[in-house]
């Protein structure tokens, strides 16, 4: 056994590389945007927040405008629905089941500089016990390459044998992969339920990340909603907070996500990540269908307008887990 012969396992390496590239695309650093005025705006915003925030009472929320009237209406209706529809009760011995279909984008670059892009689909099925310190069960289909935009990438994926790794995981307290547990790593009990203060607290946490102050606040909201475990009062506050974000608008009236149709609400901007974050709400019921990120400019073989990442979720209560 010689340490210098140890290598990073090939399968992990491929996956980590894909995930990192994807992550890097999602999170270009705000401060490095080339236009000086934007850097100044961010600095000014950061200074304003640092100087003004006492608790979450004074901050960026509110005084710079908000969502368009139509988008605000959809979001505020969804907030009303969230409050009126009580969360499903999970009795002792039962599980909250969060079923989701997820699409992630993958990319690979070979030594000769040639690049390949495709989309993977992963089905997740999570069973959260009534007592959260009990054993959680998580079924993962693994990432199945599902969508190609050119023949060359399809061939590449077939040749390199990107096979899904299905997993059945069990962990008390949701500590999968030896992680810290709890599944959602935002302390939801600490977030204000007053939409104005909630939005300020989100700005405080996201400032300096993502492609713009307001864009990243919407990403934060979508990331939290897609966990499927946000309690009703916080869900309502998140919708109302989204309605207060400048530039938020209805981006598609008939958006299809995993076979369900809803209204897409997002924020169009010319950020360096070239994606637009959206949340999709069922207009009839006000319930959340999911979230997605749309590419606003072509990226390699992937055309503009493609959803390069999305999650559709469904929650229910069950008596048994696999």
């Amino acid at each position: 056994m010689n340490l210098s012969e140890v290598t990073y396992p090939e399968d992990t390496k491929n996956r980590v590389q894909n995930l990192l590239v994807q992550e890097a695309r999602r999170k270009p650093n705000l401060l490095r945007r080339p236009r000086r005025t934007q850097v100044w705006l961010v600095t000014a915003a950061a200074a304003a927040v640092a100087a003004l925030i006492a608790g979450d009472v004074v901050g960026l929320a509110g005084w710079r405008g908000g969502a368009t009237a139509q988008a605000a209406e959809v979001l505020n209706n969804a907030a009303e629905t969230a409050i009126m529809t009580a969360d499903p009760v999970v009795n002792p011995g039962q599980y909250l089941r969060v079923k989701s279909t997820n699409v992630w984008s993958s990319a690979s670059t070979e030594a000769d500089g040639s690049t390949y892009e495709w989309l993977d689909t992963e089905k997740l099925d999570l069973y959260i016990p009534a007592d959260r310190s009990d054993e959680w069960v998580w079924l993962r289909s693994g990432r199945v390459p599902t969508t190609f935009f050119d023949a060359k990438s399809k061939e590449y994926v077939e040749k390199n044998g990107y096979q899904p790794f299905p997993e059945l995981l069990r962990a008390p307290n949701g500590s999968f992969y030896g992680g810290p547990g709890g599944w959602v790593h935002t302390d939801m009990s600490a977030l204000p339920r007053d939409p104005y203060r909630l939005l300020n607290s989100i700005y405080k946490q996201t400032l300096g990340k993502g492609q713009s102050v307001d864009g990243e606040a919407l990403v934060f909201i979508a990331d939290l909603l897609r966990t499927g475990v946000v309690p009703a009062d916080l869900r309502a506050a998140l919708y109302k907070a989204a309605a207060m974000i400048p530039g938020v608008t209805i981006t598609e009236k008939q958006a299809n996500l995993d076979g369900r149709t809803g209204i897409a609400i997002g924020r169009t901007e010319e950020g360096p990540s070239k994606t637009r974050q959206e949340i999709i709400i069922d207009a009839a019921t006000g319930l959340l269908i999911g979230e997605r990120a749309i590419l606003t400019e072509p990226q390699g073989s992937i055309p503009a307008g493609t959803a390069i990442g999305w999650t559709a979720i469904e929650t229910s209560v069950t008596n048994t887990a696999p």
Partner: peptide, 20 residues
């Protein structure tokens, strides 16, 4: 400048040494 693919290439180059 925010080029994610360049980052991927650097990862590929140094992942083994970083892992060790």
């Amino acid at each position: 400048t925010g080029n994610a693919d360049a980052f991927g290439a650097l990862f590929d180059r140094h992942a083994d040494a970083v892992f060790r």
